[in-house]
Simulated assay, not measured.
Amino acid sequence: MNEKNGWLYLSANGFTYSAPTVRVKLTQEAEKPVVAPTPIATPAAKPAVAKKTTITCVKGKTSKKVTAVKPVCPTGFKKK
């Protein structure tokens, strides 16, 4: 066994066909967790709410009002 440049080199020699199993167990101590200071919570700004608008759509004698942020007339209707 040898360690070089951060690599671990392992060599298994001197066993016969009657005992072909080689078992290796690598263990390492667990790293101690680094405790970071808790950031102080700041009040979050409220996101801007998009303003809804209403349009009137007409198809023959039928009319529909559509309310949305970006209103679009349904198929077959035209904006009045």
Results as ranks from 00 to 15, higher is better:
Met1Trp: 04
Asn2His: 05
Glu3Cys: 08
Glu3Thr: 15
Glu3Ser: 11
Asn5Lys: 10
Asn5Val: 03
Asn5Phe: 04
Gly6Arg: 01
Trp7Asp: 11
Tyr9Lys: 10
Leu10Lys: 08
Ser11Ile: 06
Ala12Ile: 07
Ala12Arg: 06
Asn13Phe: 04
Asn13Pro: 00
Asn13Thr: 14
Asn13Arg: 15
Gly14Thr: 03
Phe15Pro: 00
Phe15Cys: 03
Phe15Asp: 02
Thr16Leu: 10
Thr16Arg: 10
Tyr17Ile: 12
Tyr17Asp: 07
Tyr17Thr: 12
Ser18Glu: 14
Ser18Leu: 07
Ala19Met: 06
Ala19Tyr: 08
Ala19Phe: 04
Val22Ser: 10
Val22Thr: 14
Val22Tyr: 03
Arg23Tyr: 04
Arg23Pro: 00
Lys25Met: 06
Lys25Ala: 13
Leu26Trp: 03
Leu26Arg: 04
Leu26Gln: 05
Leu26Lys: 04
Leu26Ile: 15
Thr27Gly: 12
Thr27Ala: 09
Thr27Glu: 13
Thr27Pro: 00
Glu29Asp: 10
Glu29Leu: 09
Glu29Thr: 13
Glu29Ser: 11
Glu31Leu: 14
Glu31Gln: 10
Lys32Ser: 03
Lys32Ala: 07
Lys32Asp: 05
Lys32Gly: 01
Pro33Gln: 03
Pro33Ala: 05
Pro33Phe: 01
Val34Asn: 03
Val35Ser: 10
Val35Leu: 11
Val35Phe: 05
Ala36Val: 09
Ala36Gln: 12
Pro37Glu: 15
Pro37Gly: 07
Pro37Tyr: 07
Pro37Thr: 09
Pro37Phe: 06
Thr38Phe: 00
Thr38Leu: 10
Pro39Arg: 09
Ile40Pro: 00
Ile40Leu: 09
Ala41Glu: 15
Ala41Trp: 03
Pro43Glu: 13
Pro43Arg: 05
Ala44Tyr: 00
Ala44Trp: 00
Ala44Lys: 13
Ala45Ile: 10
Lys46Ile: 04
Lys46Met: 03
Lys46Pro: 01
Pro47Gly: 01
Pro47Tyr: 00
Pro47Glu: 03
Pro47Ala: 06
Ala48Glu: 13
Ala48Pro: 01
Ala50Ser: 12
Ala50Asn: 07
Lys51Ser: 09
Lys51Tyr: 00
Lys52Val: 08
Thr54Asn: 05
Thr54Val: 11
Ile55Arg: 13
Cys57Asn: 12
Cys57Lys: 11
Val58Trp: 05
Val58Asp: 12
Lys59Met: 12
Lys59Gly: 01
Lys59Val: 01
Gly60Thr: 07
Gly60Ala: 07
Lys61Phe: 03
Lys61Asn: 12
Lys61Ser: 12
Ser63Gln: 14
Ser63Asn: 10
Ser63Phe: 04
Lys64Ile: 14
Lys64Ser: 05
Lys65Gln: 15
Lys65Tyr: 02
Lys65Trp: 02
Val66Tyr: 04
Val66Gln: 06
Ala68Lys: 14
Val69Asn: 02
Val69Ile: 15
Val69Glu: 11
Lys70Arg: 14
Lys70Leu: 08
Pro71Cys: 10
Cys73Met: 09
Pro74Asn: 08
Pro74Cys: 09
Thr75His: 06
Thr75Glu: 13
Gly76Glu: 08
Phe77His: 11
Phe77Asn: 11
Phe77Arg: 13
Lys78Leu: 04
Lys79Tyr: 06
Lys79Met: 08
Lys79Glu: 15
Lys80Met: 04
Lys80Ala: 14
Lys80Glu: 09
